[in-house]
Design a protein around this nucleic acid. Structure first.
Lengths: 344, 344
DNA sequence: TATATTTGTTCAATCGATTGAACAAATATA
DNA sequence: TATATTTGTTCAATCGATTGAACAAATATA
């Protein structure tokens, strides 16, 4: 235990009077090695506390068994839950993950990609930063022969496997519910239109309003980074406008929290005077007073499916077809939009 | 760009009519290589889009330039901020970090340690899981010759560099403030006594009460995992007891949030009837209604100092003395404990 | 001009593990 | 008994980069 220098196959070989190659084959259950030798080698390995040198085997095999995961930020239940589930699936298959965060910054994202490529991960599973418009760096991943799977925020142009929810439909669920609560003037605190998922939410929002013959007011669709301060600022802006909405659909829970604060600070009753719906089902939405209705994105499923998509691609490198897995969104109705006051 | 196979120093060598070793030395600015050759090699490297193979150089040099970071959970502002700052400092020094989370589970923590050792990180910077009592796995890190630095949750027995705040003093700040608000019966929703930082907070709490000649009621010191449901459960327990406290000092913000909810649900006025103070300055503490007083642990400083401690140890491997860096805690007074209603 | 020093590069071994080919011994078949 | 096959191991090259020693050419010094 206190023996500081690590033991190698060479140590095992000299201990048993074998060659390193015989030891290597024994450890890897090569068919031509006798059972007797295998037993002896494995016991010696245990006895010497042998740990295979990951660097050398990765170098020789050209395979690191590492997968990089890039998420916009870690401080979000959605993303950390996705990562947790990616890890669970990949660990079972002999892979380890390296988690990195872009902090929603394009420059940081590029840097993380470079790092991961440098470490020679076998693949990258990523959700893109809000800032990212230029896809060149993601192209680079593919051109290096590293596998790439995107989830949640991913653009179709990249032609890689993708896992996410049906954002267009999510907006329909939200608007349908608000209409059922007699809301007539629904504003949308949106994400940036250049990101596919937010574009889809905006499109769904408009189409759903149209479906119910409700007015579409372009001043009521305001794009932002969806941080808490964005939610606060935009909500105040909506309240200060000549015509007030009677419901706000926010494309992210954090911004919805900001909006909630501003509504309460203005002594406006929720949901009676202003209904509020967020997006992502972050845990705090059930803890606020009132609790916030939101859309569940099935983070556990997304993580699992993204990991499986990676594994499938590793196992079938020649496969050319691209998988797009789209999950069903689920509306969670809480106090902030429930005028019947039945749910909590 | 589309050239799939990666270029090596060999490719540069054949292109320039040199040997791989000359190329390697040129890239590493070896003094014996002529400036002319260095220029030519560096230009060729650029032209061939050469990326050094990290695995091979790590194998040869016996140094991976990777540092593992283990935190209990990522979904906490304190920990993610520490990690962010560790990363910032280490990146500047040519290191990359691999972030892992134990989810507060001892088994997961051991697994993460094994993974990091397998990947052959040069060091591990960690904060221990709540469950961890057996320090054997941390001993293992040291016995493998891998550097170890602990922060926040770290036991002295391990004799490694440590960065944290003065937990004992934190409790004094909290109690002194509560006394100034005329609180006489202060309960403590505590962390587990087997973890040094929580033990220190309990000790400080008791000593501070004694200092002010206030009663120490053992039924008012309740240990837990400090999850939100623990905060809720214990707060209800305190409210149901024959004698009610008039203030609660919670050793973690998440549990404090749970306590806040229960107090509000019981229509008890905060801070008039019940003052509340949390720990860690998680961002949501300023967002709740009322906002929660808490203790700032200087997560940015902790991260920076932990990274620097690692670097110093790498640069002076023979150094035997152990550094314990203890930062001053800062009490942040918000609505939940301010009876004068001046602060927000 | 002969020798010493400096400069610039190549040689060869190395970090551990892996793997197809080669080889020898044991066993099976003709 | 002679040959073919199977079994178990070693040999040697390899994955890329690194590094001290060796060597040759250029330059400096005696």
């Amino acid at each position: 235990m206190e023996n500081n220098k690590k033991s190698t196959i060479k140590d095992i070989a000299t201990l048993l009077g074998l060659t390193p190659s015989a030891v290597s084959k024994a450890l890897n259950d090569h068919p031509r090695i006798s059972d007797k030798t295998k037993m002896a080698v494995k016991e010696a390995a245990l006895q010497l506390d042998y740990q295979p040198n990951y660097l050398s085997s990765a170098l020789r095999k050209g395979k690191s068994n590492l997968v990089g995961v890039i998420i916009p930020r870690v401080n979000s239940h959605f993303f950390s839950s996705v990562v947790e589930n990616i890890e669970k699936v990949l660990n079972l298959n002999g892979y380890h993950i390296i988690m990195t965060q872009s902090n929603e910054l394009y420059a940081k994202e590029c840097q993380e990609i470079d790092t991961l490529l440098k470490i020679q991960v076998d693949g990258i599973i990523a959700s893109m930063a809000n800032e990212t418009i230029d896809l060149e760096y993601y192209q680079k991943i593919k051109s290096k022969g590293t596998e790439l799977v995107l989830f949640d925020r991913g653009e179709e142009e990249l032609h890689v496997d993708y896992v996410g929810i049906d954002d267009y439909k999510s907006s329909h669920l939200v608007i349908d519910h608000l209409v059922s609560q007699n809301c007539k003037r629904v504003a949308h605190i949106a994400g940036f239109n250049h990101i596919r998922i937010y574009k889809e939410r905006i499109r769904g929002y408009k189409d759903a309003l149209e479906k119910w013959n409700l007015p579409i007011n372009e001043h009521w669709i305001i794009e932002s980074n969806l941080r808490i301060e964005d939610g606060r600022r935009i909500m105040q802006q909506l309240l200060d406008a000549p015509e007030r909405p009677d419901a706000v659909y926010v494309a992210g829970d954090i911004a919805a929290l900001g909006a909630l604060q501003v509504i309460l600070e203005n002594n406006i009753k929720i949901p009676e005077e202003m209904a509020l719906i967020g997006f992502s089902d972050e845990p705090f939405t059930s803890l606020t007073q009132p609790s916030i209705s939101t859309v569940n994105q099935h983070s556990d499923q997304i993580g699992k499916l993204a990991a499986e998509a990676f594994l499938e691609r590793i196992n079938n490198p020649k496969k050319k077809t691209v998988n797009r897995i789209i999950l069903e969104p689920e509306l969670i109705i809480r106090q902030s939009s429930n005028k019947n006051g039945l749910s909590s």
